[in-house]
Design a binder for these strands. Structure first.
Length: 341
DNA sequence: AATTCGGGGCT
DNA sequence: AGCCCAGAATT
């Protein structure tokens, strides 16, 4: 049983990934990579990671940055609460932990954006702590190897997987073992068509013995994703466009976005009410669909020009930007696409 | 305990 | 057109 970890460690040494840019012992770099990699694939993260490190080479520089600067570097990666929490956590490391990352999973998990699995990964990679991770890769590997059925998002199944992950930990070599689980899930024990013949634990894998690789882990029960609709107003005045900073929570929290209207008919009224602007709108652009995890958003772009300004609006969450200036901001992807056209 | 957070890559 | 990804915070 304990030989599970030894087989994985031996396999990783030969067949694992060894050249990922965050495979270092600097806890700042490990932490940054783990946050970026939450629900995000390695290939997507790499360019963001490198640019982010150039701009914020250490935790002190990140803590001292403005939130606009941090969000701008995150723009396009998604799950923007990660960027807000990252910034807060950097400040917490500076103030509460005197610039040094804490060394235990429990303390690491007190940083915003660091949950149980991420805390364990940071502690294992940076400090060699005996801590179990449980990300999507590990859930799949363990559910198949141990033949655990049931959707891992439910509490019962998740508890069972955590228990198993903890029981399987090796006494030594935690860094390579942790990496081996991620590597196996990413390269061999893949969601579809796993390469079982190349797997170091194929001999005692329950899913393989029972031919249930395609059924495990049990998929999330699917629901129809609702449709939503919005109008994004592209209000121009003297070569600049009006952007609005979104509230800190909810969709696209904290990002700069085109102001929304509930309908094309309401746009003119909305500009008058909210911005004190008399705007003449052109005909609407072509609708396009932006897909989120849990709903589909149909966007109607609506260009318009300011006729006159009836009230002074010097609000902190509003701004006029040239196209070039706007593209430097933290923007949601569909807004970025609209501005680039 | 279930839902809410993005976006891209892959099949 | 779905599915999945080095999940956590919120409700």
């Amino acid at each position: 049983m304990s030989d599970f970890s030894q087989r994985l460690i031996a396999w990783q040494a030969v067949h694992g990934r060894h050249n990922l840019p965050w495979q270092v012992s600097d806890p700042y770099r490990v932490w940054l990579s783990e946050i970026m990699l939450q629900q995000t694939q390695v290939a997507t993260v790499i360019p963001y990671y490198q640019q982010f490190l150039e701009r914020f080479p250490d935790v002190a520089s990140l803590a001292a940055a403005s939130s606009d600067d941090v969000l701008a570097r995150w723009s396009g990666l998604g799950y923007y609460s990660r960027a807000r929490n990252l910034h807060k956590a950097a400040q917490m490391v500076m103030e509460r932990f005197e610039g040094q990352f804490p060394r235990t999973p429990a303390l690491l998990a007190e940083l915003p954006g660091v949950g149980p699995s991420t805390a364990a990964a940071i502690a294992a990679f940076s400090f060699g702590a005996q801590a179990a991770i449980l990300d999507g890769n590990v859930k799949r590997v363990l559910a198949r190897w141990a033949g655990i059925s049931g959707y891992p998002g439910t509490k019962v199944v998740e508890r069972e997987l955590w228990q198993l992950a903890t029981n399987l930990l090796p006494n030594t070599g935690i860094e390579r073992y942790t990496q081996s689980l991620m590597d196996l899930g990413a390269t061999i024990c893949t969601p579809k068509k796993p390469a079982c013949m190349a797997c170091p634990v194929q001999a005692d894998c329950i899913a393989r013995q029972q031919g249930r690789q395609a059924e495990l882990p049990t998929p999330k029960p699917k629901k129809v994703s609702p449709e939503r609709q919005t109008v994004l107003m592209m209000v121009e005045r003297g070569g600049k466009i009006l952007l609005e900073r979104r509230p800190p929570s909810g969709i696209w929290g904290g990002l700069w976005s085109l102001p929304e209207a509930s309908s094309t008919l309401d746009a003119s009224n909305a500009c008058q009410q909210r911005f004190g602007l008399n705007v003449e709108f052109d005909s609407a652009g072509e609708d396009f669909v932006h897909v989120f995890t849990h709903f589909r958003l149909t966007i109607t772009p609506l260009p318009g020009s300011v006729i006159n300004q009836t009230a002074l609006t010097h609000e902190d969450h509003l701004g006029w930007f040239s196209k070039a200036e706007a593209l430097e901001l933290g923007l949601p992807t569909p807004v970025r696409k609209l501005l680039m056209k």
